[in-house]
Nucleic acid binder design. Sequence first.
DNA 1: GCACAGTGTCACGCGCCACGTTACACGTGT
DNA 2: ACACGTGTAACGTGGCGCGTGACACTGTGC
Lengths: 95, 95
Amino acid sequence: MRMHNPPHPGEVLRELCLEPLGISVTDAAQALGTSRKTLSAILNGKAGISPEMALRLSIAFNTTPESWLAQQSQYELWQAEQHRGELHVKRLVAA
Amino acid sequence: MRMHNPPHPGEVLRELCLEPLGISVTDAAQALGTSRKTLSAILNGKAGISPEMALRLSIAFNTTPESWLAQQSQYELWQAEQHRGELHVKRLVAA
DNA sequence: GCACAGTGTCACGCGCCACGTTACACGTGT
DNA sequence: ACACGTGTAACGTGGCGCGTGACACTGTGC
């Protein structure tokens, strides 16, 4: 039921891509064609992974952009689920 | 290779949820707990589906929020792919 | 001890978008 | 003619992705 807090995609990026390759944040940012601050924000959970950034990551690390966006969606969805009770929605189709 | 233009999630929402049930945009917006304008913008491709809106849709139409977010991600990703050539990214892992 | 690279972070700005309200114009059906 | 549903334009608000410049901290090599 995946009820546990999903990790921020930035953490996965650091542990699965940067650390194994031994690449610094500065060098990775330069390779991605973005600023060091932007990449740092993503790695520390201060920013999400935009569709364009997912594309950059897929090119640089030879992965699929869908995998990054899927992680981001799961993370944001879990955030929204935490406030499920606050939204008053009427069911239009029987559960 | 899904190289074709993916439909905007708003179109799918209208054709698969509103029209079959014969519900007006006004009534649907009220049931979703949002404004008529906001729902109209989504249906006409003027706005995307936010994580919170995906949650609302899943409750009202008894679906999964993941399906809506996945459609939205695919749509945004395709948009980004159209400008793939404009981003200068260096490969850090051999293709 | 000191200089340097790497990193995180703060402040500021820019642009885009989701969302709300109010108001107007159009088409359809009564 | 009138009401209704709808699309949309104009306004404001809040948030976020992204950039820059600047600062403080940490570890390494001299």
